[in-house]
């Protein structure tokens, strides 16, 4: 009935009867993820009747549609047409030129798993902080929970698998690390990743416009801050006087 594992990319893959994935590859890379973000923008600009919403993920674009408005066959043909028109998605105007400065406090009081991660990497804690905080990362997707951002990719020296146990609750602002990626929680949630710091960033705030500041395709630049500075920024943020700095590349 279907061909299963795609032999070539980009591949169209149905998810049930009302969604389709356009998959650009089977791995994680910032180049592949950049094409995902670019193609998601192409679909949004095309305004296809019957398409309810689209979202970029790490390696694919998901398209939710109303099967009563557009058939899977018709939508697939339209998507194939768009892919044919945009064979070189890297030529598309860069999806986002935004570079956000994201302060991270790696103080041990806010980094319960930093020692465990340093141990897993065979590095000492200051070295892990130094190696992590110098990174400029691409936002790969917003997923799992509102405003929850995935970024990557970290240098190989910082690659660790997920932990074997689950932390039942991490707070908004928690900076977590595993599988070459860094995520920043925007809401309280469980995780199986290493919690290595805390950012004053609240990437989801329903009363703010926009409610989500940093989106897929943006760039984030970490900067290490001390606990006193972290607390000062948190106080300023709560008073409505702080937002992460954003430059245009």
């Amino acid at each position: 009935m279907y061909s299963f594992a795609p032999s070539s990319f980009p591949a169209l893959r149905p998810l049930g009867d009302a969604s389709v994935l356009v998959e650009f590859g089977d791995g994680i890379s910032t180049e592949l993820n950049g094409r995902v973000a670019a193609f998601e923008r192409v679909i949004r600009k095309s305004v296809i009747p019957g398409v309810l919403e689209t979202a970029p993920t790490i390696k694919s674009v998901v398209i939710r549609f109303d099967p009563l408005e557009i058939s899977f066959e018709h939508l697939s043909a339209t998507l194939r047409g768009l892919l044919d028109q945009h064979t070189d998605l890297s030529n598309i105007e860069q999806v986002s030129r935004r570079v956000w400065n994201v302060p991270v406090c790696y103080d041990q009081a806010l980094a319960p798993d930093l020692a465990e991660m340093a141990n897993a990497l065979n590095l000492d804690i200051p070295e892990v902080i130094r190696l992590h905080s110098v990174n400029v990362q691409q936002v790969l997707m917003i997923g799992f929970a509102p405003g929850f951002l995935y970024s990557g990719l970290l240098p190989d020296t910082l690659h660790v698998p997920r932990r074997t146990s689950i932390t039942p609750e991490i707070p908004p602002g928690a900076v977590i690390c595993a599988v070459g990626q860094t995520c920043i929680a925007a809401t309280t949630m469980p995780t199986g990743w290493y919690e290595i710091g805390r950012s004053p960033l609240r990437n989801f705030h329903p009363d703010r416009d926009p409610a989500v500041l940093i989106t897929a395709g943006d760039t984030i630049s970490f900067s290490a801050i001390g606990k006193a500075e972290f607390e000062a920024i948190e106080a300023a943020r709560d008073a409505g006087n702080w937002q992460p700095e954003c430059d245009l590349a």
């Binding site: 049930g16 969604s19 994680i28 979202a55 390696k59 694919s60 998901v62 939710r64 799992f144 698998p161």
Partner: peptide, 12 residues
């Protein structure tokens, strides 16, 4: 092998 996080839709 670990699966790369992917979109989940209603009824999955």
């Amino acid at each position: 092998a670990p699966i790369i996080s992917e979109s989940i839709v209603l009824g999955d």
